[in-house]
Design a protein around this nucleic acid. Sequence first.
DNA 1: TATATATGCAACTTTTTGGTTGCGCAAAAA
DNA 2: TTTTTGCGCAACCAAAAAGTTGCATATATA
Lengths: 106, 106
Amino acid sequence: MRRDVFQAIADPTRRAIIALIALQSMTPNAIAENFDASRQSISKHLRILTECELVGQEQQGREIFYSLKIEKMKEIDAWLEQYRKIWETRFDQLENVLSTIKKQTK
Amino acid sequence: MRRDVFQAIADPTRRAIIALIALQSMTPNAIAENFDASRQSISKHLRILTECELVGQEQQGREIFYSLKIEKMKEIDAWLEQYRKIWETRFDQLENVLSTIKKQTK
DNA sequence: TATATATGCAACTTTTTGGTTGCGCAAAAA
DNA sequence: TTTTTGCGCAACCAAAAAGTTGCATATATA
């Protein structure tokens, strides 16, 4: 079973869950209330998010609070980094072209 | 058919294609040579990447060159931005805690 | 203690996805 | 002009994923 961050964030419901628990941890029931989906369906998404270590659990009596493990999000950031470099370079090149044109028209 | 950037980058082969054409545009055959996968399989991935506008095509005779539309990658960056804020805040809070401890031990 | 609540897990169904095969078309080469 | 090459597209298949249903279990509550 492929279970990485990229696969985890591919699903829109999971991205919504991530957004929801980003600031405070929540129980599956509380999370499910925000969606049309059933509790079981949300539970399954939570399991996937847990398996790829994007969220963590904390048991409190019979309730389980899920929270975002923000550290894991940095993995996506790290992947993006190489492309960020490219678009910054391209922007610089555009800058150069523009300033050359400017000089010529002077 | 759901076709967004997040779904596009979920597949490892597609991420590899993105990395491959990030710097120079390539034909499907040339791309496929870098994988075990068949040309048709790669073609299908290219179609998905094209549909979500992550890559662009340019016909040159009977060859078609595919290139990365780096602008689209910024969409992922924009999505990450909100979480980047969170992890920076948490880091600041940690900093505060640490400096408080430091002061107390002085 | 009996009942209600919060949750996970396994089995099953449906949908989606990734891959292959075969075909057609247009451009280049022979 | 015939053949080869580069490619897309549609049809099919198998595997994976998403969702549903029906439990089982543990913790609260009456």
